[in-house]
């Protein structure tokens, strides 16, 4: 087990290295990262010079630095936890990322829990009562769910479930932007801010995961050990909860393990629509402003997040399935 985790961490480090190369080339080598800044009259020559030096584009004498040297110095900075300074915010990138991380972590946890619980419930129901009205409805809904883009749900929920609902009925169930109403920092207030963004993110994954859960549950229900469990005299409920569900979760956990990237894609849209002060909005802003130190740092941190999440789901999997004992 431990050695497996170590191996995963090592491959993760290799992946991370490869990502640094990709990011470095895309952002600073193929083109000039400062191109857009140079054209802006508001950015002074001094700032440009400072950036050129900070990102090792030019040396102290203003001479261009060779690519390899630039890369090595950049990775060296990275290794020391120095991601540079945002020229727009005039703050260290690490600080910006740290500030944006917690809001996105809330979305992530909310998304993961809501998607997982609902998908498992819907999928299990569909598998236990296949080809019934309920199953067909779930199947149709999931089809719509993963055929509609995330931003559709974002706008739909925001406008109809928050703005229109409040306008027509006067009830304010959900908030349309931000994490908390200033001066009313309570858990219910935070939850009603969180609800719509989480739902937005979860729709597509519920749709997809519930289909996985349904098909793996259908397989499991046909397994011999389910018959054994029934032959013991267990009730249907006990058979499903104790014997079927856990086995049916296994394929789903594998799928979830590679979906952290999908979450990040959805987070851009969701955080933009709901003005959520998280990683997604930080990145979009940085891209809009060509704030490349933030872009590069963000990409590295996001890759680490995707890798770590993959390792965590691996460990969870090995706890769920005793047949997997990595060694």
């Amino acid at each position: 087990m431990l050695s497996h985790v170590v191996r995963r961490v090592l491959t993760g480090i290799v992946t991370l290295f490869a990502v640094t190369i990709v990011v470095f080339f895309m952002v600073t080598a193929v083109g000039d990262p400062l191109a857009e800044l140079r054209s802006k009259p508001s950015v002074s020559q001094v700032t440009i010079k400072k950036l050129e030096q900070e990102f090792h584009l030019k040396d102290a004498n203003g001479k261009p630095v060779p690519l390899v040297t630039r890369y090595v110095s950049w990775v060296g900075d990275l290794a020391q936890g120095d991601l540079g300074t945002s020229f727009h915010e005039k703050r260290p990138v690490t600080e910006l990322l740290a500030r944006a991380m917690w809001p996105t972590a809330q979305l992530f946890l909310g998304w993961l829990i809501v998607s997982f619980v609902i998908a498992v419930l819907v999928g299990a129901y569909s598998a236990i009562k296949p080809y019934t009205l309920g199953d067909r409805l779930a199947s149709g809904a999931s089809f719509v769910g993963f055929s509609a883009p995330v931003f559709f749900w974002a706008v739909l929920f925001q406008y109809y479930l928050a703005i229109e609902l409040t306008r027509i009925t006067g009830i304010k169930l959900f908030y349309v932007s931000g994490m908390v109403t200033p001066g009313q920092d309570t858990i219910p207030n935070r939850l009603s801010h969180l609800a719509l963004p989480v739902m937005t993110l979860a729709i597509a994954t519920i749709a997809q995961w519930s289909r996985y859960e349904r098909s793996s549950m259908l397989d499991v229900i046909r397994a011999d050990y389910i018959r054994t469990a029934r032959a013991k005299g267990l009730s249907k409920w006990a058979v499903i909860m104790r014997h079927a569900l856990r086995n049916a979760l296994l394929p789903l956990v594998t799928v979830i393990g590679v979906e952290a990237g999908i979450f990040l894609g959805g987070a851009f849209v969701t955080e933009k629509v709901y003005s959520w002060p998280g990683m997604g909005r930080l990145f979009i802003k940085a891209i809009e402003q060509s704030d490349f130190p933030v872009v590069m740092g963000w990409l590295i941190v996001a890759t680490i997040f995707v890798i770590v999440f993959g390792i965590i789901t691996d460990v969870v999997y090995s706890f769920l399935d005793p047949r997997i004992r990595y060694d």
Partner: peptide, 11 residues
């Protein structure tokens, strides 16, 4: 088939 008749994930 006793191998498949036992639940793989329970002791």
């Amino acid at each position: 088939d006793p191998l498949t008749a036992l639940n793989p994930v329970l002791t």
